[in-house]
Amino acid sequence: MPTDTSTNAATTAAISNVVGTRTRRVDLAKWALPVILLVLVIVAGLTTPGFASFDNLRAILINASIVGIVAVGMTPVTLSGNFFSLGASSSVMLAAVLFIGVFGGTGSLFLALLVTIGVLVAVGVAQGLVVAAGLNPVITTLAAGTIIYGLVTWLSNGAVITPNGADMRWIALTSWFGLPLPIYIFAAYTLVTWFVVERTVVGRRILLIGANRESAKISGTSARTTTVWAFLSMSVGMAVAGIVAGAQLQQIQSNDLPNLTMDTVAAVLVGGTSINGGEGSPLRSAIGAILIVALGNIMLLHGLPTGYRMLGVGLLVVVVVSVLHILRKASLK
């Protein structure tokens, strides 16, 4: 018996030791991103004229808000182990079309919000149900995105949709303390999603089915229901992003926002949410989006043309995802 206890104690010590190093390394991965952003901002502030001004930092946040909102919304889907939506561009475009169209047609803001969020949630939940039934999420969202794009172009005849005199400019321009409404919407949506993921039962279940689907099932978590919740959360984000984009652009066409899908995926990945699910946070996706826009902004201030800016952002994505991957692999050893 005594030998048994000592072995047990040794095992426990070994386990806690392993767990200890593991947490430390994961913490490193967790804090790497805010630190990179901070260093980037400080270095840029010292070396780039015009970067540290309030106006410029505000511009960065405004530019990051649309991609940021979609990235934050997509994070629960990634966390649940369902990769990401390849139909993000089309869905956000659909939201903007609905918002501008209904607002312009009826003049009622309430009705426009209701229709936009309602339709987007319905479309998102439908995709969630299909994915929950066992179909591949990448294929499902790709097909859904293509269908949405085709339908909207068909119904709108490819024309530019304008608000028709309805005033929605205030959504983009109202500001408090010098910051316009979209930044507050971005921040509020990020906080709400963070709270849902970290502090609610649904959120913990999303993390659990992403981390280990089998044990989640055994412990009584329905992968089906949880997946639908993740998609629901994503479609709310897309609806919000579409509303903000519509208000900012004041018009929308089905071909607008072509790069949104890949920009969003890049933001989520740079944020460090694992493609395999179970690890990451909406907060980090928001920081990822800001980091990408900030880097582009610095290069713009240095007078670099489009190509070099894209090259720089691409390099950032490749390096960050590779380093995060190596850190994660090391933490599992």
């Binding site: 990769f83 890949m262 995926v265 890049a266 990945l269 493609i275 395999n276 043309p305 489009t306 190509g307 070099y308 800016r309 894209m310 090259l311 720089g312 952002v313 691409g314 390099l315 950032l316 994505v317 490749v318 995802v321 590779s322 991957h325």
Partner: peptide, 20 residues
């Protein structure tokens, strides 16, 4: 590394190279 993750980065990078 997961190729989906890596090629999202190279997608942007190569497009930048094409612009240049």
């Amino acid at each position: 590394i997961n190729s989906l993750v890596f090629t999202v980065g190279t997608l942007i990078l190569l497009k930048g190279a094409a612009w240049i």
